[in-house]
């Protein structure tokens, strides 16, 4: 799949689409050139990645998952939780390891914001309709790559992940430190980071009661399962 991904962005790809059946001579020349390029690139693409042993992991949707935000304001503390986090991570190695070399890693996680529950139906409604506008922006996304990895214990790592976070339709660069601990074939992922709501153009109500803090703490807790084992 990764090889295909590379091909997709190669010039061979666009070249193929340049082939015009109407202009047979040019087209045939073009195809000949392209085919050889295609083979070369296929080899170039597949071999190094296969040798590196890239590993793809999916969020284990059968295991406990938790995303929780906590708001601390002078009058009222509250939190909202959901289990609806999903996504994947690809690392260039079979298993995580400390150090660098994560340039080709990537991850994508999304949270279904309509599933967030604060414990009060009316507050959920306000959150969905007045602040997160989930009819337009139903998901929050975090996509990027692993930028640093350090070993915390034998098979536990602290990772810095960096990329773009999208909430309320606003995309912002974001980095966070998370923990990943190997448990059997899975990784148990936990992390916590602050999210400043005004950065994402979420209007914090100020008029009558200050009940939401500008910055909420977001906690993540879920398992990553090797893609081969994840059911599709």
């Amino acid at each position: 799949m990764i090889a295909v991904e590379r091909l997709k962005h190669s010039c061979a790809w666009s070249g193929y689409w340049c082939y015009e059946p109407g202009n047979r001579r040019t087209g045939e020349m073009r195809v000949r050139q392209i085919t050889s390029k295609f083979i070369l690139i296929a080899i170039w693409g597949i071999v190094p990645l296969a040798a590196a042993g890239a590993a793809e992991y999916h969020v284990d949707t059968t295991a406990p998952r938790m995303v929780k935000f906590t708001s601390k304001a002078p009058l009222e503390n509250f939190d909202g939780t959901t289990s609806r986090i999903d996504g994947y991570a690809v690392t260039p190695f079979d298993t995580l390891r400390a150090g660098t070399g994560y340039d080709s890693s990537k991850f994508y996680f999304e949270v279904d914001l309509n599933a967030l529950d604060t414990g009060i139906g009316l507050r959920n409604r306000h959150m969905r309709e007045n602040y997160l506008e989930t009819d337009r922006f139903p998901f929050s996304q975090f996509a990027g790559r692993i930028s640093e990895a350090g070993r915390a214990a034998d098979s536990a790592f602290h990772l810095t992940i960096a990329g773009d976070m999208t909430i309320h339709g606003v995309q912002k660069p974001k980095s966070a430190t998370i923990q990943a601990a190997k448990e059997g074939s899975r990784y148990h992922v936990r992390g916590q980071f602050p999210v400043a709501l005004p950065d994402y153009k979420i209007k914090v109500p100020r008029l009558m009661f200050l009940k939401i803090s500008d910055t909420v703490q977001v906690q993540l807790d879920f398992y990553l399962l090797p893609a081969a084992a994840a059911k599709d």
Binding site: V4, E5, E56, H58, D86, Y88, A227
Partner: peptide, 10 residues
């Protein structure tokens, strides 16, 4: 570019 698909509908 991966084999991932959203596990359940929104």
């Amino acid at each position: 570019g991966t084999g991932w698909k959203r596990a359940s509908p929104p």
